[in-house]
């Protein structure tokens, strides 16, 4: 980076992309903060349709939450492989992470379908609207993460990733961990704490 438009080495010692991702995640905290507050305000407001306790399947969601948690572990393995410049292992762990993430999203799709059949639509009640909005936003974040992971695998195979490889893997790793942590909060507040 020295001697380019970027001038000299970074003032903080952290690379631009990583610092940029941190800033973005700081912003994301307030996005989820707003969505979670809306849900907490509305979760007990059921004028029609099922109440939360009537439809939640805690064991099922616990399993899929566990799967998502494990994907953070495999992400860590991918980052450390990238630091060791081990392309094969990096690809392997990135793929496993993406697959675990996909399993979680699959579980969410299944869950949404089940809830819908039990009478909880998007417009059924305030609970319905805010539940689907909050968990849906999280699901979209996981999906975007999966797309990034798979794209990264594709790009690494052709080994044409701009910038330092490990740097990029690490940046996507930050995003992935963040999305996982948000899920832990959502899982606790939405599923575990009774209304």
């Amino acid at each position: 980076m020295t001697d380019t438009a970027q001038g000299h080495a970074s003032s903080t010692g952290i690379s631009n992309v990583k610092l940029g991702m941190w800033a973005f995640l700081g912003s994301e905290c307030l996005l989820f903060g707003g969505l979670i507050s809306t849900y907490m305000l509305y979760r007990g407001r059921v004028t029609g349709g099922p109440r939360p306790s009537q439809i939640f399947d805690i064991p099922f969601t616990s399993v899929s939450s566990f799967v998502l948690l494990m994907s953070s572990l495999t992400m860590v393995l991918a980052v450390s492989a990238a630091h060791k410049d081990d392309d094969r292992k990096t690809n392997l762990w990135l793929t496993v992470t993406a697959l675990l993430g996909a399993t979680f999203v699959g579980g969410q799709v299944y869950e949404f379908t089940a809830f819908y059949k039990e009478g909880l639509g998007f417009s059924t009640s305030l609970f319905g609207s805010s539940f689907y909005t909050l968990t849906g936003f999280h699901g979209v974040h996981v999906t975007v993460g999966i797309i990034m992971l798979m794209s990264l695998v594709g790009i690494l195979k052709r080994s044409s990733v701009p910038g330092k490889k490990a740097e990029v893997v690490e940046m996507i790793g930050l995003y992935w961990h963040f999305v996982d942590i948000v899920w832990i909060i959502i899982f606790t507040l939405v599923y575990l704490i009774p209304v």
Binding site: C29, L30, G33, G34, Y42, F122, S125, L126, T133
Partner: peptide, 24 residues
């Protein structure tokens, strides 16, 4: 950085209400 996401949420709720029948 911290204010934009809050109005983003508000605008989403409004759009979901108007375009997809949410009840917010």
């Amino acid at each position: 950085l911290f204010a934009i996401p809050v109005i983003t949420v508000a605008l989403f709720l409004l759009s979901f209400q108007r375009n997809f029948g949410a009840r917010f």
